[in-house]
Design a protein around this nucleic acid. Structure first.
Length: 223
DNA sequence: GACCAGGCACATC
DNA sequence: GATGTGCATGGT
């Protein structure tokens, strides 16, 4: 990979951290809550996810055994505010089932296995794609795997660091080649990309005042 | 009322 | 392999 790209990616991080500071991610109390949130936030505003998680907590369902036994339609009703609730209820049940089959409901044991093995197990779950898997690995398991999301894509493409045709693994590799394999660094970088994305790098660009404004970029890029 | 939000699976060409 | 579509709520 071009050293130029790696240099820019490191400079982007410094600029974002200087502007925004530590983001305290992932906003969850336990690894299980990270897993639930990772599924619920698929293509969904985090505010709606918070509502759904609050309802789960109030129903004493932020618990592996409870989630394992709760009927899918009951789960769907509780997570309704997060949208796509029927699909997500099935996805959550599939994920919890995997935890049971794979390591008998022991999350500590699950997050003790090698990253590649667990990533494969997560990706085998219906409804867990690369972003959800990597979010769980990084934020619940503290594994050094870079999470790519819609904001990551927009920032990278608008700054000419990747082609608009680049896929998930292309962008993941871009960051992992440029940075030390450090879970804390990956954690902070992804959180900062979401932060700047929410404020400045939405579909309709608002580059004014963006901490990355001084870097070469194309606000007209339609993504 | 249109557009958007921290994806993913599946159908179709 | 690329492209299109369903899934759904709540904020702007």
């Amino acid at each position: 990979m071009a050293t130029y790209t790696a240099d820019v990616l490191r400079q982007l991080y410094d600029a974002l951290y200087e502007r925004y500071g530590a983001q305290q991610w992932w906003p969850a109390d336990t690894p299980l809550e990270v897993m639930v949130g990772a599924v619920l936030t698929q293509n969904t505003n985090w505010r709606n996810v918070e509502r759904a998680i609050h309802r789960l907590r109030a129903a004493d369902l932020l618990d592996l055994a409870a989630l394992h036994t709760v009927p899918t339609d009951r789960l769907a009703e509780l997570i309704r505010p997060a949208g796509y609730f029927n699909v997500k209820a099935r996805r959550l049940k599939s994920l919890i089932d995997m935890v049971w089959r794979h390591c008998e409901g022991d999350l500590t044991a699950m997050f003790a296995q090698p990253m590649a093995d667990l990533r494969e197990a997560l990706l085998s779950v219906r409804g867990v794609g690369p972003e959800t898997a990597d979010s769980i690995l990084l934020y619940a398991g503290r594994y050094p795997t870079f999470v790519v999301d819609a904001y990551t894509y927009r920032v990278v493409v608008r700054h000419g660091l990747a082609d608009s045709q680049a896929g998930y693994d292309d962008l993941k590799q871009l960051f992992e080649d440029a940075l030390e394999a450090d879970a804390d660094l990956y954690n902070e970088y992804h959180a900062l990309l979401v932060r700047v994305g929410k404020q400045h790098c939405r579909r309709r660009a608002r580059c004014d005042g963006c901490p990355l404004e001084r870097f070469e970029h194309d606000p007209e890029t339609t993504l």
